[in-house]
């Protein structure tokens, strides 16, 4: 198993923080902005083909998540949310050859001496225009491919238990559990890339409702329902 896939339900934790800030350190918004830029300039977007950026990689939420799910699971919990982003994204730029670790270290040392030293200026305005346009248009997983859903509202379904892969869309606590189809979403949905455990190609998605006791028996609360959208590929075939 991969611990990152099994966060839902972990016991023995401290009370939850109710910190309402989005960025708890000022630097965090910079890595957020860089990630959004990468998504908006990702090579799979048709509109990017005419944009004068030197970025020519496929980069999506799936890629960011794959990095986080590929971490040593104990390290995963040592770092804050945007610390993981910074590690994953800077690692990607080094591994892909856009920057070298040496360049990054040298610049980091320089900014450690003076954090207020200005950033370089300039660049092609068309790059920023595309990134903002991406934010306005989005990148929907809805597909024009038709498929006959295997299940209908009210059907009892069993969640599959596929072996762990680099990036998974199935919350671990649901594996092997039974739920009831509450809604069949219209159309089909793909994922940015095949995950290797049944998701990627266009397929129906269901909203499936679980009684919390069917998942956690008596270590949950009364009168509690859990709703999860599940790709058809994660459900056992009907009998």
């Amino acid at each position: 198993m991969k611990l990152q896939h099994y966060i839902g339900g972990i016991e023995g934790l401290e009370p939850s923080s109710f910190e309402k800030k989005v960025f708890v350190q000022p630097w965090e918004e910079r890595i957020f902005g860089i990630h959004v830029a990468m998504m908006g300039l990702s090579s799979h977007l048709e509109a990017v083909k005419s944009v004068p950026t030197k970025f020519n990689s496929f980069w999506t939420w799936g890629h960011l998540r794959q990095g986080a799910e590929g971490m040593n699971p104990f390290d995963y919990f040592k770092y804050r949310y945007y610390e993981k982003w910074l590690g994953g994204i800077s690692g990607f730029f080094v591994e892909s050859g856009y920057v070298t670790e040496e360049e990054l270290s040298t610049k980091t040392e320089a900014y450690l001496v003076n954090l207020e030293a200005p950033l370089p200026s300039g660049g092609e305005p068309a790059i920023d225009a595309q990134i903002i346009e991406y934010l306005r248009v989005g990148d929907t997983p809805a597909c024009d491919v038709e498929a006959q859903p295997k299940f209908k509202v009210g059907d009892t379904v069993t969640v599959r238990n596929p072996p762990p892969v680099d990036h998974c869309k199935l919350p671990g606590y649901l594996r092997t559990k039974k739920g009831v189809v509450d809604q069949v979403y219209e159309g089909t949905y793909n994922y940015y890339f095949p995950t290797g455990d049944g998701v990627g190609d266009p397929m129906p998605i269901y909203n499936v409702v679980f009684d919390s006791h069917d998942i956690w028996e008596n270590i949950t609360e009364p009168n509690t329902k859990i709703y999860v959208q599940i790709f058809e590929g994660y459900l056992e075939d009907p009998e």
Partner: peptide
Amino acid sequence: AARVRALESLLIEKGIITGET
């Protein structure tokens, strides 16, 4: 903070993003 600024700075220099992105 220094590391992310270094990264942003390099990405601007290399024409991946701009100084305003």
